[in-house]
Design a protein around this nucleic acid. Structure first.
Lengths: 345, 345
DNA sequence: TTCGCCTGTGTAACCGGTTACGTTGTGAAC
DNA sequence: GTTCACAACGTAACCGGTTACACAGGCGAA
């Protein structure tokens, strides 16, 4: 592989001149520059970004550290980040904390010297731990995590208001026996959604201690809740699942038991996964624009890297929007609707 | 940020000794090593990977260059790659060619000095162009691309045999008027699938020139094909779409027209996207284990990086497996089946 | 003519690690 | 007591770029 010295020798100039010519800095005559460029072409020289980043003290790369997340959520976040990063010529270095606290520390440490900034999504991590791992000198934006006491910029989804709005909508349809299927206990999103549900029930319908079934965001846990419901243990005219996956499991179980949605019971989810609109009936849900989460965070990071101060914009809260579909008898999306996104092949 | 010299000074040793102690090389007494380690802790020193990779001439990073792919396909590939990379302590640098040839060259060039090897998925690129862009000195494995004349290792899906097998299965059910919805003309996968279909029809049922409708892998193009079919332009007892997305669009259109699947017509797809099992009826399809594609490629790359020769294993072909579901009246998967994969939140 | 000043270019010191090689000191063998 | 081998450690060169600074030459003004 050709180095800058090779190019300089070939062009008959010094490395300094070659560097200046290549980087388009001033103080190089046109003929000299042409000679350097010819040498570059001839040796097909590509600057060694590792070496360059050593002196420039910037890598044009941001580290993205995500938990063990697969599926649409993961790829949408990356897509949002990439969209913005690409415009600014930044690269993405992926780190995975694989669900373990120890790995999280390792993933963050491994980024040193490789990245200019960090985008971290630590769903189940305590803020104190997080601040131990994070390098204060490395600009960092948190994804889907309210840093609270920590003074770190973040972008998050307003799960509370989303759940509140969905509950309000169900109540507005006259439902009163609304059952909530909760997410994992330790998960912040799940807790906020549950709070939103409980508060809406209390404030709007004056119902305290509404029915809540346990769940863990998995399809199977939604199915379990469904089995409890069809056994008639719990009267319900509507079910609000803390995410779409559980709603899917729930609906399958209801269908097995001959229960009709939305005639016998309304169903609502949260997230608007691509599957939601294809269910039969299609699923009413709160739409979270996941790619926006990534792109917003990346934009914030870029501004920090440019030395701008975020000021009041150091925290961004994205509000989800309600998508009324068939499971609440709402505007059923025609089955022929065309899903956004490219084909998988 | 503390450097190695800081650590050495703090521990009262030379940089060489500090480096040896930290990297666990021999020739360091226990007390010296302890002193160095104490200094490391005190200054919380983390080696600068950029500088390290400059001398070591390895970065412990592989570049992953993908086309503009979103959704499940994208994330499954990454997941497969990450699984293997993580075990070997390798990092992933993401590059996106954003669908343009020019960007592809840029993405590859930007990797120089940042990565030890490359995983590239260039679905619509001509081999000649590819060889221009690729650095022969940089170990590269191609994803889902048979390099043909180029002598590059690759891992691909046997689209031909998959399509052949699916067609064979439809024929075995007594179908004879099988219509194929093709994918984009320039797409290799699509072409191979079409060939598999045509050959199976010819060899097994002695039917030449079977009916083929155009498509582009999008849901909408599947719906268009569906509209043609319900207008009765073309007699059909089965439809084999070149991917699942188109099958989804097709089925929606058939349902709109009151056609019953599988009573009036059988439907089959290709890919087994997560949605497939949730359709009503559930979709018969060829299952492609996408994560395997990524993990296999990564394993091949690792072997090359370790200096092993791949020998005969320089090309890996993954064979898809037929999943018979409701749309062919086959073993309908119970609706309550639990989907694999984590929840999106 | 001499003194600046400005422009184009070269020299060499970095960036933060790794490592070849040289130096020192210790104990065993003679 | 020498000699030698070997282990522990230090010095400095290097990886491949960037860039502060020095330097040479050309030009206009005094």
């Amino acid at each position: 592989m050709a180095t800058l010295r090779d190019v300089a020798r070939e062009a008959g100039v010094s490395v300094a001149t070659a560097s200046r010519a290549i980087n388009g800095l001033g103080n190089v005559t046109a003929p000299t520059k042409a000679a350097v460029m010819a040498a570059v072409k001839k040796l097909n020289f590509v600057p060694h970004s590792g070496a360059r980043s050593l002196t420039r003290r910037k890598t044009d790369t941001v580290g993205v550290i995500l938990p063990d997340l697969f599926g649409e959520f993961f790829s949408e976040i990356i897509r949002g980040i990439d969209l913005v990063a690409h415009e600014s010529g930044m690269h993405l270095l992926l780190g995975n904390m694989h669900g373990s606290t120890h790995e999280t520390a390792a993933a963050i440490a491994a980024m040193r010297g490789r990245v200019d900034g960090l985008l971290v999504m630590p769903p189940d991590l305590k803020p104190e731990l997080l601040s131990d791992y994070l390098d204060p000198a490395l600009p960092t934006v948190l994804l889907n995590y309210d840093a609270g006491s920590l003074d770190l910029p973040f972008v998050a989804v307003d799960n509370y208001r989303g759940a509140y709005a969905m509950t309000e909508a169900l109540l507005a349809r006259g439902m009163r026996q609304i059952v909530h299927i909760a997410g994992p206990k330790h998960n912040r999103d799940a807790r906020d959604r549950q709070r939103g549900f409980v508060d809406a029930m209390a404030k709007i319908a004056k119902i305290s201690n509404p029915a809540i079934l346990p769940g863990d965001f998995s399809e199977e846990s939604g199915a379990q809740a469904g089995r409890l419901l069809v056994q008639g243990q719990l009267p319900a005219d509507a079910v609000f699942a803390a995410n779409d996956q559980m709603a899917v499991g729930l609906m399958a179980e209801l269908a097995n038991a001959g229960k009709s949605v939305p005639c016998d019971v309304l169903v609502a989810g949260f997230d608007d996964i691509p599957l939601a609109r294809h269910l039969n009936p299609s699923l009413t849900t709160m739409q979270v624009k996941i790619d926006r989460l990534g792109s917003t965070a990346m934009m914030m990071l870029l501004r920090i890297l440019r030395g701008e101060t975020l000021g009041g914009a150091s925290a961004t809260i994205l509000t989800p929007t309600l998508i009324a579909r068939g499971t609440t008898g709402g505007a059923a999306t025609p089955a022929s609707v065309v899903a956004a996104g490219a084909s998988p092949t």
